[in-house]
Amino acid sequence: MLTLQYIPHHDIEFLSTDDKIKKILRSVKEDKIILIEGKLAPNEESELIRKTMEQIDKKFKGIEICGVDYELKNLPFFDKIKRQIANVLLKKKAGITIIGPATIVKEIKRDPNKIELLTQDRKKRRN
């Protein structure tokens, strides 16, 4: 059974990068796929990768991560402005981030227009 955990923006908004990453990795190591409202900053993403590497062991093989932003480039000019204003007002709330344990999530395929989350087959997950 797959568990999907939703983390709203206000849950992590005021956490330090360290605490945010601890919270994310705690859930991922409990075999949950987490869906965060908003995107992580580039330094938070690299810190998450760093901490993930530090914690890799026999059981925990790492993570799969995908941050999705609103696609601005194909929008008409005024829609683009509206979306950018909304982004400023909502701070980093715009977009979503999906993070899952590598033992469960094989790959998150991202194309400009779609996201596919591919899971590992059961046999491999049990190993």
Binding site: P42, N43, S46, I65, I108, K109, R110
Partner: peptide, 17 residues
């Protein structure tokens, strides 16, 4: 390979920052 991977985006985002 597909270039839309989070690792690529993270590296580029960090360098831009």
């Amino acid at each position: 390979l597909n270039p839309y991977s989070q690792v690529n985006i993270t590296i580029i985002g960090n360098l831009a920052a």
